[in-house]
């Protein structure tokens, strides 16, 4: 099987670095604009919920941040797995870049969930609730991954060992997703991806989906910017980096 040229180029650090330079302005500006539009629509234009009143407006950021946290983990695990199997340094760089972003978004999901839980369930936190517990585990997987990296002096060794953790931990992702269906949880069930279509009217669904797109674009913007830093760090004194920083070649 012959793979197309662009596929091979994705393994080349200078190519990916320049590709990120071209994509980032689009991802960044589009992401931020949609965040503004979605937040305004969700906070001001969308009507209040008939049961939860105004507090439901957290739905425009809580599921989105949770989904970005989970997507970060999947990106990290796939990249780490590719890096492990094919010994591709660039793939490890992607995994390392996704981890802190995922940790921050998972923290956001837990925080926004807590302040939504207080007016809705009467509690910020419920020990033993499957959705909350497995989401917290997701945060600890990210933090464990980063801590484990810090324990190695050699980057190659850190890449290989943490890749195993990243790949094994991916089993948690379907558990987080299906936890509200598999167990009795105080957490509400799926609102959008459910049998019978979204349980939301269009004037609520539109800002919801805009925010999903906005957070997704913002995530890839952050990922590519972090990846660029990681590439420069790893490539060290490669010739193209020297040209990049404006030093002449000896």
């Amino acid at each position: 099987m012959k793979l197309p040229r662009w596929f091979h180029q994705l393994g080349s650090p200078p190519y990916v670095y320049r590709l990120a330079d071209r994509l980032c302005p689009w991802l960044g500006w589009l992401g931020v604009s949609l965040l503004v539009v979605g937040a305004y629509w969700g906070l001001v234009i969308a009507p209040p919920d008939y049961q939860q009143g105004e507090s439901y407006r957290i739905i425009y950021i809580h599921p989105q941040t949770a989904y970005i946290g989970m997507m970060s983990y999947v990106v990290m695990a796939i990249a780490a797995g590719i890096g492990y199997v094919w010994r591709l340094k660039l793939a490890h760089a992607v995994a390392v870049s996704a981890a802190p972003i995922g940790a921050w978004f998972t923290f956001c999901a837990l925080f926004t969930g807590a302040v939504w839980g207080r007016p809705t369930w009467g509690t910020y936190w419920q020990w033993g609730d499957p959705r909350i517990m497995f989401e917290a585990l997701l945060l600890f997987l990210f933090l464990g991954y980063l801590a484990l990296r810090g324990a190695f002096d050699e980057r190659d060794k850190a890449d290989r060992v943490t890749a195993i953790l990243a790949v094994v931990g991916v089993v948690n992702i379907p558990i987080v997703h299906y936890s509200v269906e598999w167990w009795n949880s105080i957490h509400q069930g799926p609102t959008i991806l459910r049998a019978g279509g979204p349980a939301m009217t269009n004037d609520m669904l539109a800002p919801f989906l805009i925010m999903v797109a906005a957070f997704t674009l913002t995530f890839y913007w952050l990922l590519l910017r972090r990846l660029q830093g990681e590439i420069v760090e790893r490539e060290g004194d490669a010739r193209w980096i020297r040209e990049l920083v404006g030093a002449g070649t000896p």
Binding site: S55, I58, W104, F111, W116, T218, L222, R226, Q228, G229
Partner: peptide
């Protein structure tokens, strides 16, 4: 509840942009 959720999320977004930029800059 609503404003603290939006506020923290905004703060995390801004922080992440700054962290990514700082890393890129220090690597360069």
């Amino acid at each position: 509840y609503v404003w603290s959720a939006y506020g923290i999320t905004l703060a995390v977004l801004i922080l992440n942009v700054r962290l990514a930029r700082a890393k890129h800059r220090s690597a360069l």
